[in-house]
Amino acid sequence: MKTDSKIDKALALDLLGKMMKARKFEEKVQYYFSLGMIHGTTHLGIGEEACAAGTCSALEPLDDMFATHRGHPAAVCKGIDINKMMAEIFARETGVCKGKGGSMHIADKSVGVLGANGILGPSLPLACGSALAHKKLKDGKVSLAFFGDGASNEGAFHEAMNLASVWGLPVLFVCTNNTYGMSTHISKVMKVTDIEKRAIPYGMKSVTVDGNDVMEVYNTVKEMRKYAYENNEPVLIVENTYRTSGHSKSDGNLYRTKDEINYWKERCPIKRFKERLLSEGIATQEEIDNVDKETTEIIDNAVKFALDSPYPKLEDIYDDVYAD
């Protein structure tokens, strides 16, 4: 799919801001993690921001989104409260999940973030059900599941593809294809690595985009959202990208070369988009610098908010095991 040549300036700056916010958020997480000030583990999606920003911006604000363990950029771009999200990662009581979820379980129903997920694959069946609810309730929403190339080998992927197509569910299955399942390259685990083709036996519409081109992602998802909603049909969207950060804190990058990582750093979606905005005269350097400055402030404030927040209290551990 080709990118529309005319870019709306406000949209462009919004997308740039979201990508920068996601990038800076994760860089801060990485930094405080290295200082030992963040507990547990984190899975960063540095390099994949165009997928999150383009996809989430193309949804309606209250559409439901189910994310993966590498879910920070998606939550940021879906409009979650950044302070509360940062506080969650710092395990604070003010966190979006009250410090009980952490990096792998960021969620906020009020903005349609129905959760990052520590398990690979379930986002697709969950999104099927959510889409079924929207179809029944006629509330104008669709549902979206992010997953990776790795999870497309899970049974849950195939079961959900079948269910969504046979039931005609308004759901978008968005594969963030970064070509690695942890350390294992896609070519070692799939005979046919063109994931788009996995829609064929399910009679489902599918499309592949350059996941490092935020406008291409945005325009495609926008169009596919409209299609899914109007026709009550699922769509498989494959967004090809690359994770320049490691899989998690344990990653020694033994499975790929520095040259490969550098090749993709050159194709950084933020860098590419800035260059395009300048070369096509859509935004000035000053305007881009302003977005840079604003997003830095937002993230710095979020860290401050998190660090100033108390930890949850041990006596509250039984809160929220059950709903009233």
């Binding site: 697709l124 969950l126 929207h134 549902s143 849950a156 079961e159 079948n162 269910l163």
Partner: peptide, 24 residues
């Protein structure tokens, strides 16, 4: 609703429907 023989899909769908406003 008769489902495919696909427990992961339809139990997952029940959970998804529940979080999005239904009582499956």
């Amino acid at each position: 609703m008769d489902t495919p023989i696909s427990e992961t899909a339809f139990v997952g769908a029940a959970i998804g429907a529940a979080v999005s406003g239904m009582r499956p």
